Amino acid sequence: MADIEAAKATFNRFDADGDGQVTPDEFKRAMAEMGDPFVTGPVAEAVIKAKDSDANGTMSFDEFWQALQNG
């Protein structure tokens, strides 16, 4: 099981504007900052879509946490 405090810290690295939602652009930018410049816009969109259980186009912390719990 993931540590929720570590998960919150990681999520906050992705949530650049601090609004509680990670957009594909924020995901792409964070991945580049962490050393993965190969995450393209379409890849970022696919990752967010795969975790976006309410289909609003972004990933909330609850969706991020659920994804961590599911492996």
Rank of each mutant, 00 (worst) to 15 (best):
M1I: 12
A2Y: 10
A2S: 11
D3S: 04
I4M: 08
I4H: 06
I4D: 09
I4G: 04
I4V: 15
I4E: 14
E5Y: 12
A6G: 05
A6F: 06
A7R: 09
A7C: 13
A9T: 11
A9Y: 02
A9G: 07
A9P: 03
T10E: 05
T10K: 06
F11G: 09
N12K: 13
N12C: 10
R13F: 13
R13E: 08
F14M: 05
F14Y: 09
F14I: 03
F14S: 00
F14W: 01
D15R: 07
D15L: 07
D15I: 07
D15K: 06
D15V: 10
A16Q: 07
A16W: 01
D17K: 07
G18R: 04
G18I: 02
G18A: 03
D19H: 12
D19S: 14
G20M: 07
Q21M: 15
V22D: 01
V22A: 05
T23Q: 03
T23V: 05
T23C: 03
P24G: 11
D25S: 11
D25E: 08
D25I: 09
E26R: 05
E26F: 03
E26S: 02
F27C: 09
F27W: 08
F27P: 06
K28W: 01
R29L: 15
R29C: 12
R29P: 10
R29T: 15
A30W: 06
M31R: 02
A32G: 09
A32C: 03
A32P: 02
A32Q: 08
E33D: 08
M34L: 15
M34V: 04
G35T: 06
D36P: 09
P37Q: 12
P37S: 13
P37R: 14
P37W: 07
F38Y: 02
F38R: 06
F38V: 04
F38E: 04
F38H: 04
V39I: 15
V39D: 00
T40Q: 08
T40N: 09
G41H: 05
G41L: 11
P42D: 06
P42G: 13
P42M: 12
V43L: 09
V43M: 12
V43F: 02
V43T: 10
A44R: 03
E45D: 11
E45M: 14
E45W: 05
V47C: 03
V47L: 09
V47P: 01
I48W: 00
I48K: 00
I48Q: 00
I48G: 01
K49Q: 05
K49R: 10
K49T: 07
A50S: 08
A50H: 01
A50P: 00
K51Y: 06
K51G: 10
S53C: 13
S53V: 15
S53Y: 14
D54H: 03
A55G: 10
A55Y: 05
N56P: 13
N56Y: 09
G57V: 05
T58M: 04
T58V: 12
M59D: 00
M59E: 00
S60L: 10
F61A: 14
F61T: 14
F61C: 15
F61W: 11
D62H: 10
D62A: 15
D62M: 14
E63L: 12
E63K: 07
E63F: 11
F64E: 04
F64Y: 15
W65A: 15
A67N: 11
A67D: 08
A67V: 13
L68Q: 07
L68H: 08
Q69S: 06
N70I: 11
